[in-house]
Design a protein around this nucleic acid. Sequence first.
DNA 1: ACCGATCATTGCAACGTTGCAATAAATGCG
DNA 2: CGCATTTATTGCAACGTTGCAATGATCGGT
Lengths: 347, 347
Amino acid sequence: MTKFRPDVSRGIRKPSGKRATLKTISELTGLSLSTVSLSLRGGASLKEETRQKVAEAAAQVGYVPDRAGVRLRTGKTNVIALVLDGSDEAIDFSRHMIRGIGDAISGTRYHLTVMPEFDRSRSVETVRYILENRTADGVIITHTGARDRRVQLMMDHDFPFVSHGRTEFFTPHAFHDFHSEAFAELAVERLADNGARDILISVGDGTTNNYHNIIRTFERTIARRGITGRVVVQDGIRPASAEMRQFGRDLADKPDRPDGIICDSETRAISMLCGLEDGGVLLGRDIRFICKQTSDILSTVFPNVDTIEEDVYAAGLELTRLLLRRIEGEPAESLQTLSEPVAHWRS
Amino acid sequence: MTKFRPDVSRGIRKPSGKRATLKTISELTGLSLSTVSLSLRGGASLKEETRQKVAEAAAQVGYVPDRAGVRLRTGKTNVIALVLDGSDEAIDFSRHMIRGIGDAISGTRYHLTVMPEFDRSRSVETVRYILENRTADGVIITHTGARDRRVQLMMDHDFPFVSHGRTEFFTPHAFHDFHSEAFAELAVERLADNGARDILISVGDGTTNNYHNIIRTFERTIARRGITGRVVVQDGIRPASAEMRQFGRDLADKPDRPDGIICDSETRAISMLCGLEDGGVLLGRDIRFICKQTSDILSTVFPNVDTIEEDVYAAGLELTRLLLRRIEGEPAESLQTLSEPVAHWRS
DNA sequence: ACCGATCATTGCAACGTTGCAATAAATGCG
DNA sequence: CGCATTTATTGCAACGTTGCAATGATCGGT
């Protein structure tokens, strides 16, 4: 039971015997350590000839700077941290997000570390840990609240981060967000255009800022169109469950049931739609339905339901791009983007 | 546009002004650097009194060893890498897996880095990169093939890893796997008990070893029960798609349609079931259906369909535990576990 | 041919940690 | 009490990197 104590030559043993470092190149070229280091980082004051020589040698031995060395010396970790929230209502949210981030950092020095934190309140502690121990150069958070304490904390310490979702803070910070207002407006308009006069909107997690944006726009648009609306926050109930399905069923039976429904979660929508059909509702005639879509499942089960797509992969991509620019020092106010919802009208 | 160059005091400025290091404690206690370091790692040769003193001081200043320092000196990264495969047929696979890993490393020194690699062939390169650059102390891979080249590579270099899935290699390695054979057997038995005489099994990705195990057991069990069976590999077709639904539809119309179906993917099952219903099939009477379940969605949509559960969260937990023990030097042959399928008979 | 200026390269120290050899202090023993 | 032995502590070097001050080389101008 010997421990995996790294031997002198860390990593795969190359023909040469050990991992290439600056020293390797230095010996190979006869130049000093400093020169090699400088050259590799594009030192402006070097002769073209030496730069060539160094670059060649580096390529030959397959030099890759040691992360620990750089990090120790400069403090740069070349790591971005994703603080993952557990309350995934969107199907495969994590997968798409991570894939987006992965594609965005591929080709860069950066690695991605994921800190899954499922207890919302402890999520602040996770961020604090990252700050205190400088465990990453930048942070991506999701499920952002209106006065998110993580955002507060990172702003206080002037630490590079980007949030998936906006906040109400006065000081600007980098964010990328789904345009929930556009979503809500688009949905209401579509339903109203199709004849709906009483719209129910079902939203999850009432703690995210997204929620507020959706509700606000929903109510404004309802009013403008001169129709009625009601809001249901379905926070405590599991999105995919018999309970949720029953909710749809009960809704169908109600004498004053709505004639249009908007739902901000694909999973919840699926459950609810099943319940509605149980209750004999004919979708598209008795009740019109629109929901946010993040995977292909809903459309496979209910091909005729209108959806509005949020591209989580693209969000991951964009969040990362913003974050990298933020780390480079770009001011936060120029790093704020929204993604427009993409409507899929299926009928 | 100033760069985020780490200042001298990295991390959150404590009251004291900068991050606590061994030196801080050394000065605080009057002991030497070496003593402090030794003491913190439980040096056996130290006076009880000094150990106390050091521990106290460390707690007081909130000392946490600098990862870069440790890593540079010892080569230990305190990182485990998850090489994530993109072809997620299981709903929320990534999320559950990551959550399991997260829970397993919480309280340890370890961080999780995720390397999303969606091109299967490049996945080997990802592993090679980790080995060459000693970017992690151990690796978790998923979607393991029978003669997986990543496994080969890591075994060749005696690098700690654990695979989600078994292989055919002679040399033992650490793994945790879903007991696919038990799954297949359980499913066939159940269907046969309920009167099925001709069973179709639909499997995805034919490159994983899982696939082989399922098929082999399927055919053996079929034979034993004296009934007929057929295998359909649905590799090229998207699990959630109109196409997949159509497959179910077409199946329903066939004169020689099977009277029992087994499916190893929840998503594919949902699509297929919709198609079958389109074709007028009465589930549970005309055709009996069993599928692998990794989320709650299928059961919400089709509450009466029998499922067999694979707990991906638990898999993440177990994989990590195994890996950590492997990193500690335990022999691979003692780090091989299977997870038993959990049947949910709903009718 | 000498001077100051520019260009190219280098040595040194430091980032935080640990292993080892070496020292200092305490103890045992005759 | 002196010497060997154990117990407790320490200094030094090294891991790979970079920033800075310092050195050495080259050059144009007088």
